[in-house]
């Protein structure tokens, strides 16, 4: 089992997770699916010998962007409750 098959399986996982992120009705769930897809992308970058890009993807794509989405969602939620 070489690294190629591992990468192909993880790409399939990212594909399924991105479909779930688009098709799920709940916004919070789709933000979490996007974060999971980002983490699996970081794993693929490690398999493809790109540790720099994997670190960037894990810190920025999976960490920071997710929390930006969360804060924006909370803000919209708060505005909705005020009205």
């Amino acid at each position: 089992m070489n690294s190629l098959y591992i990468a192909s399986i993880f790409i399939f996982v990212v594909f399924v997770l991105s479909i779930l992120a688009i098709e799920s009705k709940n916004i919070l769930k789709s933000i979490l699916f996007l974060s999971a897809a980002s983490i699996f992308t970081a794993i693929i970058f490690v398999v493809w010998k790109a540790p720099d890009v994997a670190m960037t993807e894990a810190a920025i794509g999976a960490g920071f962007t997710t929390f930006l989405f969360f804060i924006a969602y909370f803000k919209v939620d708060k505005l909705e409750k005020e009205n």
Binding site: P51, D52, M55, A59, I60, G63, F64
Partner: peptide, 12 residues
């Protein structure tokens, strides 16, 4: 591996 962009994000 690492650098300014990753480290800056971790500090943030």
């Amino acid at each position: 591996p690492g650098g300014g962009f990753q480290g800056g994000t971790i500090v943030a």
